Computed example of a mutant assay.
Amino acid sequence: MIDDADRQHLQRCVDLAAQALESGNEPFGSVLVSSDGDVLFEDHNRIGGGDHTQHPKFAIARWAANNMDVQDRATATVYTSGEHCPMCAAAHGWVGLGRIVYASSAAQMTKWLAELGVPAFRVRPLPISDVISDTTIEGPFDEFASQVRVLHVRSNKGYG
């Protein structure tokens, strides 16, 4: 179950995803929050330049590895507009980050994009739990997934 603080962080992720779209990137945004509730790092997708590893969740993992100790990483929460891709899930697991809360799932996004006629991704969208274990994972949440869907439709308006 998510609380009001979780909802606030998820809304920020959706807002960051909208910023990503406005700057020519795919609509994804993520926030790293300490166990005390402090926002430590936030970012949005930056793949518009051609480097498809510039995902916000991967940036969070890098930042956490360089700026947090093991215990603080384990008790932090990553909020994100879209479920981690396999690359980001692996980075999350290797760095030892804690709880994940996501607005929309990889399965939802795959369905939305297929409905728009967007070709399938080269990397299969797997559930986070197929990549890492021993992590609390919560999502999707319809109140935010519907907002994320609108962003994906805007992002892919040339298809379909």
Score class of each variant (00 low, 15 high):
residue 2 I to K: 07
residue 3 D to C: 06
residue 4 D to T: 04
residue 6 D to W: 00
residue 7 R to S: 07
residue 13 C to A: 13
residue 15 D to W: 03
residue 16 L to Y: 06
residue 17 A to H: 04
residue 19 Q to M: 08
residue 21 L to F: 02
residue 22 E to D: 15
residue 23 S to Q: 11
residue 24 G to R: 08
residue 25 N to E: 15
residue 27 P to G: 07
residue 27 P to N: 07
residue 27 P to S: 03
residue 28 F to A: 12
residue 28 F to E: 13
residue 29 G to T: 03
residue 30 S to I: 02
residue 30 S to P: 01
residue 31 V to M: 01
residue 34 S to K: 05
residue 40 L to K: 05
residue 41 F to M: 10
residue 41 F to I: 05
residue 42 E to A: 11
residue 43 D to N: 13
residue 45 N to M: 13
residue 46 R to L: 06
residue 47 I to K: 10
residue 48 G to K: 03
residue 49 G to Q: 09
residue 51 D to F: 00
residue 53 T to N: 11
residue 54 Q to P: 02
residue 56 P to S: 06
residue 57 K to C: 13
residue 57 K to A: 11
residue 63 W to N: 00
residue 67 N to P: 02
residue 70 V to C: 15
residue 71 Q to C: 15
residue 73 R to F: 05
residue 76 A to L: 15
residue 77 T to W: 14
residue 78 V to Y: 04
residue 78 V to S: 05
residue 82 G to N: 14
residue 84 H to F: 15
residue 87 M to C: 06
residue 90 A to N: 09
residue 93 G to N: 14
residue 94 W to Y: 15
residue 94 W to A: 15
residue 102 Y to T: 04
residue 106 A to M: 01
residue 106 A to K: 03
residue 107 A to I: 09
residue 108 Q to W: 05
residue 109 M to R: 12
residue 109 M to G: 12
residue 109 M to F: 10
residue 110 T to L: 05
residue 112 W to Y: 09
residue 113 L to F: 12
residue 114 A to I: 07
residue 120 A to D: 08
residue 121 F to E: 15
residue 123 V to Y: 11
residue 128 I to S: 03
residue 137 I to Y: 02
residue 137 I to G: 06
residue 139 G to N: 08
residue 140 P to A: 01
residue 141 F to M: 04
residue 142 D to M: 08
residue 145 A to W: 04
residue 146 S to K: 14
residue 146 S to H: 11
residue 146 S to I: 14
residue 147 Q to P: 10
residue 150 V to R: 14
residue 151 L to K: 07
residue 151 L to E: 06
residue 153 V to H: 04
residue 155 S to Y: 14
residue 156 N to V: 11
residue 157 K to T: 05
residue 157 K to P: 00
residue 157 K to M: 09
